[in-house]
Write a protein that binds this DNA or RNA. Sequence first.
DNA 1: CCTCCTGATAAGAATAAATCTTATCTAAGA
DNA 2: TCTTAGATAAGATTTATTCTTATCAGGAGG
Lengths: 159, 159
Amino acid sequence: MKLSEEEKQRRLRSFIRAARQAGIKLTHQRLEIFREIAGDGRHPDVESIYKRVKKRIPPLSIDTVYRTFSVLEREKVLAKVSVFCNRARFDSNMEPHHHFVCRRCGAVRDFFSHELDRFHVPEEVKPWGDVDTVYVELRGTCAECAGKASAEKTEDRRK
Amino acid sequence: MKLSEEEKQRRLRSFIRAARQAGIKLTHQRLEIFREIAGDGRHPDVESIYKRVKKRIPPLSIDTVYRTFSVLEREKVLAKVSVFCNRARFDSNMEPHHHFVCRRCGAVRDFFSHELDRFHVPEEVKPWGDVDTVYVELRGTCAECAGKASAEKTEDRRK
DNA sequence: CCTCCTGATAAGAATAAATCTTATCTAAGA
DNA sequence: TCTTAGATAAGATTTATTCTTATCAGGAGG
Ligand SMILES: [Mn+2]
Ligand SMILES: [Mn+2]
Ligand SMILES: [Zn+2]
Ligand SMILES: [Zn+2]
């Protein structure tokens, strides 16, 4: 899930624009952290971004990653993914989109759907409040995990 | 979001049946914990269930609530709700269903949708793996929170 | 190019949800 | 009633996240 260079550059520019507009400082750390997230379409977690950026900025503290995360979230430059709640994950795709999630390995992939974009909020829900986002999660098993599982089965049968 | 007595009883029976079938012990604690969850359609968190059941069983430990939770989850008697990841929440409604979620107060309400039940997995997603569940989250502001917000506005205007 | 000041960072302490450990207890089958 | 595998209580432990505080640096203004 490596993103195209042009998409990465677009996200980087939108980050810099948002930072300027919000009057927040464009520090070396923030730029490197965002660069790392913007180039990764796999919805990485805080820990992995921390490790990767620390290679380039050794004194980096994990707190800075968390802080940058919440600043970027507030400025609507990236979003928190609410899948597998054990740890927070970044999503640098701010286009409204949905997710395919593998129950086994936790892989998260983006998809778009015209069918879902046309979805009408059911009548029973309307009196409960105003809906601003329709988010869909397709849950199942990814091809890779399915492959591993069947490989293990044949392994077992051989015993 | 108080559930009807008959729905509560139905869930309680299905819990007892599942426990018998799985060969797990029907302890006083488990019964009381489940009774509390089964009667609450608001997707309560571990802490609140702990507090409520502790009134009836004072020596109850919160670990027992967590353990009961994971046993019941394994036995498919209830599910974990992955909304607002700060703390785990129970869902004793095991019918496939969707949620309306209020961003402000975290209220979660169940809904069903024939339109969504007919949803076809997009072609682009199919090669990624097998989808077993289509889960939809309608995010927005509940009527109660919207009411509070507009009340505060008029308050501000008076100054 | 310097200076200053405010907001940002690093390090490590603190917090809080969730899990683990161990001694004790109990549901339920014989 | 007796037995025992599995369950509980209490408190320690783990782990993700946030907080504290001394130091640092981006960037506005000179
Ligand atoms: Mn995404
Ligand atoms: Mn529900
Ligand atoms: Zn997978
Ligand atoms: Zn609300």
